[in-house]
């Protein structure tokens, strides 16, 4: 016993080190891998407040780029308006479409802090549980997919962008419908990777990759990026496609949080236990 106490006494620095390092690693592990990650609301709130005044300053500097992005988005929206579509009525059939239900609504939010040059990138936005943001909601920007909400405090939320390798979303080729996981390989913020596209598909450079209805976070049809190159995977049966991401994370400021009215219903169906 005496020797044991002596041993403890002699190695107290080592023990202190191991204890504190363990604490740090526990802290990291509780955050780092997305589906299991837990963010304390307090940390998110502190990060958000500290970042807000910084970002207000930066907003002035970036106004021009911002306006450009909004103008482009307006253009796309305008093209989808009823006034820019023509109804071709041939008088041969009747369409009764009063059964449409609103499924998604969007909440606009501003980025108060973000990183895009690290390996574990994060975004903090200025809307939180008071605005109805919940964990696992999708987030998109004017040019396409941004990420998924991973932690919420009263006034801020923490978003894991698709340029964080702990998030995998489902992406599909626009032309052919083949789908696969989009996962960031961790090199630079403009490129990502779409895997498991069958070898017999006729995918070409420049093809658009969209979100897939199978993904639980996003509505179908939001742009993820365009195909840049293709390569056979190690198993020789599937392509691994290099993607050029459509969202420029370096200039992103305004995002939309996607609320799915039928999300809870879908969840309960997915989590139903087998009899």
């Amino acid at each position: 016993m005496r020797y044991f106490l002596l041993l403890l006494q002699q190695s107290r620095i080592l023990i202190l080190f191991l204890a504190l390092e363990g604490l740090a690693i526990y802290w990291i592990a509780s955050v780092q891998s997305y589906p299991r990650s837990k963010f304390s609301a307090q940390t998110t709130e502190i990060n958000g407040r500290v970042s807000q005044w910084q970002s207000e300053l930066k907003a002035y500097v970036n106004l021009k780029v911002e306006n450009q992005q909004l103008a482009e988005e307006n253009l796309r929206m305008r093209q989808q308006l009823n006034s820019s579509l023509m109804v071709q009525y041939y008088g041969a059939d009747t369409i009764n479409d009063s059964v449409l239900n609103q499924r998604y609504t969007y909440l606009s939010a501003e980025i108060v802090r973000s990183s895009h040059l690290k390996r574990a990138n994060f975004i903090i936005i200025d809307k939180g549980s008071r605005s109805g943001v919940k964990r696992d909601m999708g987030v998109m920007g004017p040019n396409g997919v941004v990420g998924v909400v991973a932690g919420v405090s009263a006034n801020f939320s923490r978003v894991i962008p698709i340029i964080n390798s702990s998030l995998t979303i489902s992406g599909a080729l626009k032309n052919e419908g083949y789908f696969g996981p989009v996962k960031w390989p961790g090199r630079d913020y403009q490129h990502s990777q779409l895997n498991d596209i069958p070898r017999y598909s006729d995918v070409k450079e420049g093809d658009t990759v969209l979100t897939d209805g199978r993904s639980q976070y996003f509505p179908a049809g939001i742009v993820i990026g365009t195909v840049e190159d293709k390569q056979l995977q190690a198993d020789q049966n599937f392509y691994e496609l290099g993607l050029n991401l459509s969202t420029d994370f370096a200039s992103l400021r305004q995002v939309y949080v996607i609320k799915d009215f039928f999300g809870a219903e879908l969840d309960s169906l997915q989590n139903e236990s087998l009899p």
Partner: peptide, 12 residues
């Protein structure tokens, strides 16, 4: 870490 939101990285 608290200021930056990097959760334990710098502490470790």
């Amino acid at each position: 870490d608290l200021l930056e939101g990097s959760a334990g990285l710098h502490a470790g």
